[in-house]
Amino acid sequence: MTAAKQIATLKIQRGGVGEAARFERFEVPFEPGQSVLDGLRWLRAAADPTLAIRFSCINANACKECMIQLDGETVYACTARLEPREMTLTPLPNKKLLRDLVTEIASPSERFK
């Protein structure tokens, strides 16, 4: 009963400081039990290493660094499930944008100024 290979399409906001934001679409092979972060890490290694994302712990959901927006809702990329459909990924809207999906999320007292 092996179905045709399923695909997750990630529509990702790209661009850094002072650049106009643009969207790029990437296709990622879908397997159940993967997170959005798994998909993003896969596509950096397979397609585009210039994509910037912020994460540390990958699976543990302990570092809380991977916050982004998925279809307009704030999520942790490492606990949001990858799904075989188009998923729109954007940086947090209320934080300063650094590049692509990365924003300045540290509390001011823990930043290097």
Partner: peptide, 15 residues
């Protein structure tokens, strides 16, 4: 106190 990640979150300790 410098860290390449966010303070107290980037390494094994928090995990």
């Amino acid at each position: 106190l410098a860290d390449r990640s966010l303070i107290g979150r980037g390494g094994a300790t928090v995990m």
